[in-house]
Amino acid sequence: MPTVGVGDLKDGDFLLDVREDDEWRAGHAAGALHIPLSEFVARYGELAEAAPQDGRIHVLCRVGGRSAQVTMYLVQQGVDAVNVDGGMQEWAAAGRPVVDEKGEPGNVV
């Protein structure tokens, strides 16, 4: 399983958040693309349109389980994807900004 730590992420890295809508609304990484795991296969085209053609996709969930599933799916499709170890909990613990759906400070739930 390709994995990367939150500390290894750089500004501008493409982030895909696969948590459910209520988790996203409470708090997420600014600029991340949101496609819930439960809708991922049906909405895969949105990722293909938004992701950089020659860049890596960094997949996030709350702690890393759901994002690991999506990462493995993407790798099987030939996509350069990595699971972000510790997910949004590690993101927040590292002091990275978390915003709600209005762009205000958010929380990881």
Rank of each mutant, 00 (worst) to 15 (best):
M1C: 07
P2M: 07
T3W: 00
T3M: 00
V4N: 11
G5K: 01
G5Y: 03
G7H: 00
D8W: 08
D8I: 08
D8G: 13
L9I: 05
D13M: 06
F14A: 06
L15I: 08
L16E: 04
V18Y: 10
V18H: 04
R19F: 10
E20P: 14
D21R: 15
W24T: 03
R25C: 02
A29K: 15
A29L: 08
A30P: 11
G31A: 02
L33A: 07
I35Q: 11
I35A: 10
P36T: 13
L37I: 14
L37V: 11
L37G: 13
S38W: 10
S38Q: 13
S38K: 15
S38T: 15
E39N: 11
F40A: 13
V41K: 12
R43H: 14
G45N: 15
G45S: 15
L47E: 09
L47P: 09
A48S: 11
A51R: 05
P52A: 06
Q53K: 14
Q53W: 06
D54A: 03
R56P: 05
I57P: 05
V59P: 15
C61D: 14
C61H: 07
R62Y: 09
R62L: 08
V63P: 00
S67P: 10
A68V: 04
A68Y: 09
Q69F: 03
Q69I: 08
V70A: 14
V70S: 13
T71L: 07
M72P: 00
M72S: 04
Y73H: 13
Y73W: 15
L74W: 13
L74K: 10
G78Y: 14
G78R: 15
G78E: 13
D80K: 14
A81C: 13
A81Q: 12
V84L: 06
D85T: 04
D85L: 07
G86R: 00
G86F: 03
G86I: 02
G87Y: 06
G87V: 09
M88D: 03
Q89P: 00
Q89T: 03
W91I: 03
A93Y: 04
P97R: 01
V98K: 04
V99R: 01
E101Q: 10
K102V: 02
K102M: 04
G103L: 12
G103K: 04
E104V: 06
P105G: 06
G106C: 05
G106K: 03
